[in-house]
Design a protein around this nucleic acid. Sequence first.
DNA 1: TGTATTCATCGTAATATTGCAATTAATAAA
DNA 2: TTTATTAATTGCAATATTACGATGAATACA
Lengths: 110, 110
Amino acid sequence: MGLTKSEIYTEEQNRLANIAKAFGHPARVAILQHLFKVNACVCGDLVNEIGLSQATISQHLKELKNLGLLKGNIEGTSICYCIDIENWQNVSTYLQVFLNQKPTNLGECC
Amino acid sequence: MGLTKSEIYTEEQNRLANIAKAFGHPARVAILQHLFKVNACVCGDLVNEIGLSQATISQHLKELKNLGLLKGNIEGTSICYCIDIENWQNVSTYLQVFLNQKPTNLGECC
DNA sequence: TGTATTCATCGTAATATTGCAATTAATAAA
DNA sequence: TTTATTAATTGCAATATTACGATGAATACA
């Protein structure tokens, strides 16, 4: 039905999936990479840097902000975006614990 | 238009996004967690373990296989799935390089 | 040879996501 | 005040994803 049944999963499973989903689009990867490089960037610069419309960039920024990965300072009519390093590390670590898990016992069949 | 414009992104950006997308659904997180725990598991067990139909589980397994995260051995009428540890580590490391990047210069505004 | 079991695939329906044009809101500058 | 600039929001269209029932393919067992 296209509707993810979030209620049958654990908190951790839903949180991991939500975090991963934020990185699951090349536009958001590109935005994050650019912000890491310049570490201070207004929305308009991102529109020029990446080949998408201002409206679309704004939507992707919103998703990244919802996860707490970005923070922004208002500078006149523009907003300067940066990576929220502290939160980035929290989110990043949470995902990396999952990525670094090992099998509890060696496989007997494969 | 609902169509991701992959051609405007770098190889790396597309690859990172594809990897992240595989982890971007709680059912796939749950499947991977279970496989890590028991390290050998047929599809039917996953259907019981997770509350989804056999058809849906099979679809999710396909996506994980496409990324090379799983390998399977045929055992009679059933298939035994395991984590492909070597490939898991390749994929995992690729994503973690991205997650562990640092800003090149300190932000001046945020 | 059936029959049962197990997983894959197909068809479908519904929700989610992506992308953009148009509009709105807010501030700066004239 | 008016105009310009910048970003957010809204509304729409199209593609993508999720989920399941039905069906198909392959093997084990009788």
